Simulated scan of single mutants.
Amino acid sequence: MGAVDDSLADLPEPDRGCLQHVIDVARAVVPEAEQGMSYGMPALKLEGKPLVGVVRAAKHLSVFPFSPAVIDAVAGRLEGYSLSKGTIRFTAAHPLPDDVLEDIVRLRRAEILK
């Protein structure tokens, strides 16, 4: 196991499953991503740089693509979600669409590899 798997293992359902799904989607898009920590949160990394992080807060779940530009690129497709410069907030009852997650990961991957 690694930092991401270990962190998610302790979370209650349905939050654990929802965040695990985010990680599974990211791994499908970037299978070479490695588990680690970034800014104190569990994250997948690519070439030593943070690709996507996930966190459970008291009232929501968060995806951190570590890039305001990535969030800006998908913001128009996330009506009804809470967005800020660095995070996208959602709940297990209202998860992020897979196609948006895939694009988030692809966009961040492109930033890291350029």
Rank of each mutant, 00 (worst) to 15 (best):
K45Q: 11
H60D: 12
A110S: 12
L19T: 02
F64I: 14
H21D: 15
I104C: 05
K59D: 14
M41E: 13
R108V: 05
D99C: 08
E13I: 06
A26D: 00
L61V: 10
G48S: 03
F64W: 13
P95N: 06
E111N: 00
H60G: 09
V29S: 01
V22S: 07
G53N: 11
Y39A: 12
E34F: 00
S67G: 05
L101E: 07
V29W: 01
T91I: 06
L107V: 03
Y81I: 12
K114I: 11
A33V: 03
A3H: 15
A75W: 01
K49I: 10
I23M: 15
M37L: 12
R27K: 14
A92I: 03
R27N: 10
S84V: 12
P95A: 03
V55Y: 12
E32W: 08
A33F: 00
K45L: 15
D6F: 13
L46P: 09
D5K: 15
A110V: 10
T91K: 11
M41F: 10
R108K: 11
P14M: 08
D98L: 07
I71K: 03
L11R: 05
L11S: 11
V22P: 03
R109Y: 01
R77I: 11
V29R: 07
P65H: 03
P14H: 02
A43N: 05
V63K: 08
E34W: 04
G36Q: 08
P68H: 06
S82A: 15
A69M: 12
I112W: 05
G80T: 11
G40F: 02
Y81Q: 11
A73I: 02
A93L: 08
E32V: 11
G53D: 07
M1R: 15
E13Q: 13
K45S: 10
P14I: 06
